[in-house]
Simulated assay, not measured.
Amino acid sequence: MNFSSSWNGLRIGIAAVILALPTGLFAQADFYQGKTIKVVHGRNAGGSGDLRVKAMVPFLQKYIPGHPTIVHEFMPGGGGRKAANFIFNSAPRDGLTLGNTGGGMVASAVLGEKGVQYDLDKLIFLGSPYSSTHYIFLTRREAGVTNLEKLRSTSGLRIGAQSVGHTIYNIGRVFAWVGSLKEPTFVTGYSTPERDVALMRGEIDAIATADDHLTRNIEWIKKKQVDLHLMIAVPKGLKHPQFDGLPDLESFAKSDKERKVIAMFRNLRLTGSPFFAPPETPKERIEILAQAVSRTFKDPGFPQEYKKLVGDDPSPLFPEENQRAIRELPRDAETVTVFNRLAGPGPLPSRH
């Protein structure tokens, strides 16, 4: 056998394969080498959304060719609208600036709220580390609201939240509306850690929160510092090992209108806490980022890292599922009108 001839043939074959591959593939793979990706959060630092992103970062760095540095910028305001406006209108279209917000920015656009300067159908959604969850309404024990009867008869409960339009603000308002709370007031302007401190200090009486946040603050339950009252599962019927005994909010709905509002909240929430890129970001870089997100969710080490930081298991929404969930959101006019009032700063709508 002529080794030299065989080796030359092998080299020619390898060269032919390489030349047959799209040249852009190598250019885009090299693009992220030595670069920095900035994630613009539509929230303050320290909350569940921040921790969900941070759980993903080492895996994204692993799976994005070139292993870029990933940094964070926090741009709270308008339930994610401020960050989404920035990504849509001002962020570079180069694959180096991404947004991540709660589902409030999706709700704001669907509901046609003021301050929305972005088009959901033009933003490029790249997936979410969670889509299913449970929301729980609780009061601090010292408020004396120890059961549902007292919850519904106590007037003027102060319910704390991050900002008008934030997912937690919205669900707190839905809890208060369907649960028939008497003249509640809504206190906003907190980061999640600030809100928790305010609750324990008695500056507010109640909050709505997600199951992972409550799991990380399980001492509130162990030390009997809070009372749990109501829950809503997303999607409907999803069981929770710790909180499944709580009454489902939907059991208090009196009309189809109220049930449709709860269904709209569930559908909006199923979009998760999405990553998204500006319009006109090069397709090849979007493909690289989407593949990195998908590989992160499939990595066997990701659930452990996520649970360590967040306190709960991930329920990933893959990039293609995220895009589809956004496109298929229901936009029933009557339900949108009611939900819009719930998500706004004014009084709760009438239940009649």
Rank of each mutant, 00 (worst) to 15 (best):
L148D: 13
T69E: 14
G66M: 10
Y130G: 09
A161I: 10
I262H: 01
W177P: 05
R152F: 03
V71I: 15
Q291S: 15
I286H: 05
T209K: 00
L120K: 02
L10M: 12
G127V: 03
P58F: 05
L214G: 06
L123Q: 10
L309H: 03
T154I: 07
H352C: 03
F339L: 11
K35P: 09
G102Q: 06
V145I: 15
F31G: 00
P92M: 07
G80K: 08
K239C: 00
Q242R: 11
R295P: 01
N44H: 14
S191R: 07
Y130E: 09
M56E: 14
S163G: 14
D227F: 01
K54Q: 14
Y306L: 04
D256K: 13
L21D: 01
R11V: 09
P22K: 13
E321L: 06
R11W: 07
G301Q: 09
F137H: 03
N100S: 14
I64K: 01
A325L: 10
I124N: 04
D196K: 12
S132Q: 13
F74T: 12
D248T: 04
L249Q: 02
D50T: 05
A107V: 06
G179N: 05
G179Q: 03
D121G: 08
I221P: 02
S4W: 11
V197L: 15
D244I: 04
H67C: 05
N85Y: 04
R341H: 13
I218R: 10
G24V: 01
V145D: 11
Q28S: 11
P22V: 08
R93V: 07
T133A: 10
F265W: 15
F243G: 06
R269S: 13
A55G: 09
Q225M: 13
E219C: 01
G102Y: 06
K308A: 14
K223T: 14
V174K: 03
T133N: 11
S132G: 12
F88N: 02
L157W: 08
K114T: 14
T97V: 15
Y32K: 01
Q225C: 02
T97H: 13
Q225G: 09
N170F: 07
S294A: 14
S90G: 00
D211W: 00
E334K: 09
A84W: 00
R266K: 14
A233V: 01
L51V: 02
V116P: 01
I286R: 03
E142W: 02
G165M: 05
F302E: 07
E149H: 06
G156C: 03
P347R: 08
F88R: 03
D313N: 15
A343Q: 04
P76W: 04
R93F: 08
R11L: 15
P129K: 01
K307C: 12
W177G: 10
G13I: 01
L246E: 13
S155Q: 15
T281S: 13
Y63A: 13
S108P: 11
I37W: 02
F3N: 11
A198S: 15
F86I: 05
N147K: 12
E320Q: 12
I326A: 03
T36M: 08
I124C: 02
D119W: 07
F137L: 12
V178T: 07
K150G: 10
T97M: 05
L268T: 02
M264D: 11
Y118E: 14
F297A: 06
E287N: 13
P68T: 10
A208N: 09
S273W: 05
K38I: 10
K257T: 12
K182E: 09
E250K: 12
A290M: 05
N44S: 12
L348K: 11
A290S: 14
R173M: 01
